[in-house]
Design a protein around this nucleic acid. Structure first.
Lengths: 217, 217
DNA sequence: TTGACAAACGAACAAGTGTTCGTTATAATA
DNA sequence: TATTATAACGAACACTTGTTCGTTTGTCAA
């Protein structure tokens, strides 16, 4: 019950269109954007998307189309007043490798953006979310599946939790940042672990960790 | 530069219509709802509303209409769909003691609440949030200051992460729940820790952990 | 009264727009 | 091989929908 390539692109376009116009596109607009010459084919695929629960339609109504909260979680409807922050799900983080951006996913919409409240994370253009893979980040008290919300920056303040690449170790890490002269002390969040001194020039700061979110259901 | 009665009613209708359908009404639908027999009069008043900044229009586009955050009240409408979940901040959790409520909070909305998106946590009446105190929950990969979102329930399914009170140990704990006959195996999230067998009658389930949120800034 | 203007009316028009339908192509199945 | 289901095509159709325009009404100032 997966989405075909066309259906994925249709959904993407509808979302983008809604974001821009605040009203849904027509069948012909969708077709043009996705490269479907025939309106009936667009209609056909809209019906499939409806069957799969990604959208709802009002029949015979122009632009009678809305995204559901359904399988795709992300509703790009503008919830006026509620301050929401949409954080791109950028990729995967694990200790043993550099940050890996998501490639083409089976369902890119399941992994498009994380919607959080501004209460939790200050809105900023350079936010992104990385999902932790494996148990190599346990010293930072984050585990397989957790989402780490990161603000991209290449410097940090003392005491920030940063995401960094340690060049000589070829390792990505989440640690508290304590610069001490020419070396930097990287302090694990978990007090059971020892701090790691790293020469400043070996440390490449990728961003600051703003929050960690673990979803269990 | 005030709104005429008709314009007020048109705005109200557009708002309600958007709330219900998630796409804007047509000129004729507006006219019918507000009691304007002529489409040209609706158009006329839409133009006035646009001049006054209450709406934006895309000309010659069906339903090409959106509310602005404009002059006033428009933005104060209920956040459409209310995709937000308000979770009461109920108290403090630590391993060494039963859950401690913050204080008297009759009105769940008056008190402090954590505002999360429905994407993250399914809306339910019996949700609450506890803040972790101290480092005694490290085996569950949660730490001082973390928020644990809990759904109150007294039973659990195998594999749920639960918050429970172990009577004879006089201890609150967050563990994965694996019933095994007369005893329950409580499995720490952190694989470095050993599972704990507990007699079923000593275990008092308080709820199911839905999410963990760590805010670092 | 006259003139200007905002507001409203309703018919007619021209695009816009969703649907239908006959057809073709491909892959899986019997 | 024949059959069925899925997917796609494009033309035609009919309804939808925004716009235009000539007209009327009421108000206000000259």
């Amino acid at each position: 019950m997966n989405l075909s390539d066309r259906q994925v692109r249709m959904l993407a376009f509808i979302r983008a269109y809604l974001e821009e116009h605040n009203y849904p596109p027509t069948i012909r607009e969708i077709g043009k954007a996705v490269g479907i010459p025939s309106t009936s084919v667009v209609k056909y695929n809209l019906e499939r998307l409806q069957e799969k629960g990604y959208i709802e339609r009002s029949e015979e109504v122009s632009r009678g189309l809305r995204l559901t909260d359904g399988p795709s979680l992300v509703s790009s409807l503008r919830t006026a007043g509620a301050r929401l922050v949409s954080v791109r799900k950028l990729g995967i983080i694990s200790a043993g490798a550099p940050i890996a951006a998501f490639g083409q996913q089976e369902d890119p919409f399941a992994g498009d953006a994380l919607l959080l409240t501004e209460e939790l994370v200050p809105d900023s253009p350079d936010l992104y979310a990385l999902q932790v893979k494996g148990d190599s980040m346990i010293d930072a008290l984050v585990f397989d599946g957790d989402w780490v919300i990161i603000k991209h920056q290449e410097t940090a303040q003392r005491g920030d939790m940063i995401v960094a690449w340690i060049k000589d170790r070829e390792e990505t890490t989440l640690k508290y940042y304590y610069p001490e002269g020419a070396t930097v002390r990287l302090q694990p969040a978990n007090p059971a672990y020892q701090p790691i001194p790293v020469p400043a020039e070996q440390l490449q700061i990728q961003g600051k960790v703003l929050a960690v979110v673990r979803q269990l259901v």
